[in-house]
């Protein structure tokens, strides 16, 4: 589904990603962990198409297409979804109108008729129950005045509404209490199936207690330095990131 080869990216001249290699197949859940500043969010941003990041080397193939050539909206049309670490507040645009526009724009991208009001409402009700989201939240301005937990739930709700093929969750667990993490994890678990894939970007192992990853990768200094299964996450939780940093630094010196 997604093949990242030797990806290098920088922002304002500063090199952040220094040769990422990653392969994600349908049905898989990958977790990317790593200390602050390792490049986790940069990777998410580059995949979603944020324009202030410049790809200087490497390739990203998504469903057989050169992902890096596509505009952010086309990436979304092709089924890529990024749950933002910091969802943007937009006063004056209701969450419902936002999601309705998004759903219908993506349908249009696939040459499908837009959902009418009734169809949309039915879909929304179904997904609202899933995410434990209240109607009153959706009639408010997008993310404006939402609590941290509400914002993250709203991201996962959008994911449920848009039904992407590849969902990238950028630190969706950060700042959430344990109940909110459960709700978010529950949403992700209901979403995952054999045809889609999830890339979880997280700082802590906590979320992985609820969403069991098939693969865990450690990102450090712009590269994936370790890959393994969920046991790797547990090891990181126990020993901290320092042991990885030390190992990597020793390898480089050797």
């Amino acid at each position: 589904m997604l093949t990242i080869r030797n990806l290098h990216a920088s922002i304002e001249g500063e090199k952040i990603l220094k040769g990422i290699n990653l392969e994600i197949k349908p049905g898989e859940v990958h977790a990317i962990m790593g200390p602050n500043g390792s490049g986790k969010s940069t990777l998410a941003s580059v995949l979603a198409g944020r324009s202030d990041y410049k790809v200087t080397e490497g390739s990203v193939t998504y469903l057989g297409k050169n992902l890096l050539e596509l505009s952010p909206e086309k990436r979304a049309g092709e089924g890529l979804f990024l749950a933002f670490q910091y969802p943007v507040e937009i006063a004056g645009l209701t969450t419902t109108n936002f999601i309705k526009t998004a759903v219908n724009e993506i349908r249009k991208y696939h040459g499908k008729e837009p959902l009418d009001a009734v169809q949309f409402l039915r879909l929304m009700k179904e997904k609202m129950a899933l995410m434990n989201i209240d109607q009153s939240l959706l009639s408010r301005s997008l993310n404006e005045g939402f609590s941290g937990g509400e914002k993250k739930r709203n991201e996962i709700f959008q994911m449920a509404m848009l039904e992407p093929k590849l969902a990238i969750l950028d630190e969706t667990d950060s700042g959430l209490d344990i109940d909110a993490i459960r709700i978010v994890a529950n949403g992700v678990n209901k979403f995952r199936n054999k045809d889609n894939a999830v890339l979880l970007i997280t700082h802590y192992q906590r979320l992985l207690d609820y969403v069991i990853p098939d693969f865990v990768h450690v990102l450090y200094n712009g590269r994936i330095v370790r890959s393994g299964t969920k046991e790797l996450a547990l090891e990181l939780e126990e020993r901290g990131y320092d042991f990885i940093k030390n190992e990597v630094n020793e390898e480089q010196e050797a």
Binding site: P72, E73, R75, G77, I90, G92, F98
Partner: peptide, 30 residues
């Protein structure tokens, strides 16, 4: 227009022109 807002909307499949329109309209709403 807020670039962050624009990217957020586009990342949800909304083309740039419509995303701009939504943001301008949102600005006028209050």
């Amino acid at each position: 227009l807020d670039e962050e807002g624009l990217f957020y909307l586009r990342s949800r499949g909304i083309n740039e022109k419509i995303a701009r329109s939504l943001l301008v309209h949102a600005f006028a709403v209050d």
